[in-house]
Amino acid sequence: MDAPLANAALALFSAACVAAVLSMLRRSDALYRLTAALATGGFAALSLGLILRRMEAGHAPLTTFYETLVFLAWASWLLALVLLIPLRMQEPAMLIPFICAACLGYASTLDASIRPLVPALRSNWLLLHVAACFLGYAGLAAGCAAGLGLAVALRRRRPAAQWERSAVRCIRFGFLFLTYGILSGSVWANEAWTTYWGWDPKEIWALLTWLVYFSFLVLRSRRPAERSPRMTVLFSVGGFCAVLFTYFGVSFLLAGLHSYF
């Protein structure tokens, strides 16, 4: 990604974080709108950067750690624009710039060069599989942020309904795309690696993550009596720990077929 655009996006999301904190402290609509405007500016810079990188690399910019972090930041604000802001879920939406800034801040420490593709990645499944997985991660990250907001609201005995609704909504979105990501990855693996399931550590941890959120959603939908905000906090944060391990832990600690980054 073009360094000036990435830096501009990081600066805009960081400014959005400051505005978000002020907005939450002062409960100001104007500051909320400023947060959304700054983050949308960062989103626009990222969009342009991703398009330019796609043109320069000749393939979807989703093949290195740097590229996936940038895409995760982009997908996170896209999710806020699509899922949270239209429904006036203001407070949860204001946490998203923190996710974006964290992703871009970490990405700024990594090698941003475009690397040549290995043969297994030269496939149309690349865009479908990786984009689906990271849209899923974005949803689950937003679900975790809303879950933390819910925990704070519960502790302070403040209205928590909006936080819980946001958390569940984001988790459902994330779960849906994680499912698409795992299934498309299986089909792709069958074309490239001779089998749709090879018990690769990334596959295993993606499945375990999926099972955590599946359990949560099944419990919510089939056992309404057991629904509780505390359960939402537990699963949104615990599930996201599984996401983090699948994304970072497996890549850094375990050897496997997904060691492209």
Partner: peptide, 25 residues
């Protein structure tokens, strides 16, 4: 077993879409 597995994938994708997708969004 591959045709069965792929059929299962299609049903799983449909089921999750109906469940997590249509109901919520």
């Amino acid at each position: 077993g591959l045709p069965l597995v792929y059929s299962g994938f299609v049903l799983l994708a449909l089921g999750v879409t109906l469940w997590a997708g249509a109901g919520e969004f």
